[in-house]
Nucleic acid binder design. Structure first.
Length: 345
DNA sequence: AATTTAACCAACCGCCGAGCG
DNA sequence: GCGCTCGGCGGTTGGTTAAAT
């Protein structure tokens, strides 16, 4: 047996509320409290169903509702809670004073969800979207894994000579597999657990010459595509190096990553992707500086460590910074071992 | 200036579970 | 135990506004 409607819809008003209706509802609730929504509209002199009244009150008229833009901390909380609770908007709202479930849901769908998708993160599972994963993502995330700050960066790939050949070999093998057998490619990615592999990335004992000819071809194509896509993402700057630089602001490096790869940091410096310091020597971690693309060149951003400490204040954050932080918050967990993946090849 | 497109968000709809007779 | 009501929840819609063409 189907349920009867919550109220007789005949003659009842729908659509946006007028200020007069708001006033009637508010006055009534102030006098009698929000009880018995079914009889409330009649008693309050409203041509609305009780459900509509309740929604209007809880989502808009309630005095303790906080209006305006979500603070950075609130957004951070939403993401973290959503990763645990899923689409339990009311449960999430219960932990965000002054915010309604509807407001959080709307904000999630219009802002956070899109941002996660742009970052290649599945907003439902909070995991990377393997179906959208490409080699640039693989390499990029390997870099991210080595250095948490790298997830905040949008640096182009370093030259092949500065990347560990083993990693490139795997990337090239992945490229071949992806072309030849996309299903198996995805399967391998899922089965394999890429591990923390700093040495693999930077091992000076091996050289690019160990790559086979087809692998080198694949690699070059990949890097070319990656470079192109990086330029493409920067259409507004038209790939102009100067204007590109304008969009970078200082980001202190306190992860020691660049110290571990002096050649890499030199290369980035030489290509004006690292600002500050001297001659690209980033051996002094405290004084070394990396750059990250942001909306305003003049604006000094919080450090990556402040992002990671979650102490970034809402007043200082831009949309891009939030986006970057989302990436780091839900950062691709690099699976266990690169060798495991390699073994599949 | 006019039109189209995208973004935002208030409100609606249908389903569900708790509580009650 | 059953049927019904009510309040609550999550998904979706559609109107409004802003931005782009």
């Amino acid at each position: 047996m189907g349920r009867t409607p919550c109220c007789d819809k005949n003659g009842l008003k729908k659509g946006p509320w007028t200020t007069e209706e708001d006033h009637k509802l508010t006055s009534y609730i102030h006098m009698h409290g929000p009880a018995n929504w079914r009889t409330l509209p009649k008693n309050a002199g409203l041509q609305r169903c009780g459900k509509s009244c309740r929604l209007r009150w809880t989502n808009y008229l309630r005095p303790d509702i906080k209006r305006g833009r979500f603070a950075f901390e609130e957004e951070e909380t939403i993401i973290q809670l959503h990763s645990i609770l899923g689409n339990k908007w009311s449960a999430i709202a219960a932990r965000l004073p002054g915010r309604t479930d509807n407001e959080i849901k709307n904000y999630w769908n219009t802002h956070i969800r899109k941002r996660l998708l742009r970052n290649g993160i599945d907003p439902v599972t909070h995991a990377p979207r393997l179906d959208h994963l490409d080699l640039s993502a693989i390499l990029g995330n390997v870099l991210c894994h080595v250095n948490p700050a790298a997830s905040l960066l949008a640096l182009p790939p370093p030259p092949p000579s500065l990347i560990n050949p083993e990693l490139l070999r795997i990337a090239a093998a992945l490229a071949s597999l992806k072309q030849e057998n996309p299903e198996l490619y995805l399967q391998r990615l899922q089965e394999s657990q890429l591990a923390q592999h700093q040495q693999t990335l930077t091992d000076p004992q091996t050289t690019p010459s160990q790559l086979t000819q087809p692998q080198q071809v694949e690699l070059e194509r990949f890097l070319e595509l990656n470079n192109n896509s990086n330029n493409g993402d920067d259409n507004n700057n038209s790939g102009n190096e100067a204007s590109r630089q304008d969009n970078f602001v200082s980001l202190p490096n306190d992860f020691g990553f660049w110290n571990s790869i002096p050649e890499l940091s030199d290369w980035y410096y030489q290509h004006n992707l690292i600002s500050g310091g001297s001659g690209g020597n980033v051996s002094n971690a405290n004084s070394s500086v990396m750059s990250t693309p942001l909306s305003s060149p003049a604006q000094v951003t919080p450090t990556s460590s402040t992002f990671l400490n979650g102490s970034l204040s809402a007043s200082t954050t831009t949309e891009d910074e939030r986006e970057s932080y989302c990436s780091s918050l839900l950062k691709f967990e690099i699976p266990e071992s690169l060798e495991l993946l390699d073994d599949f090849m």
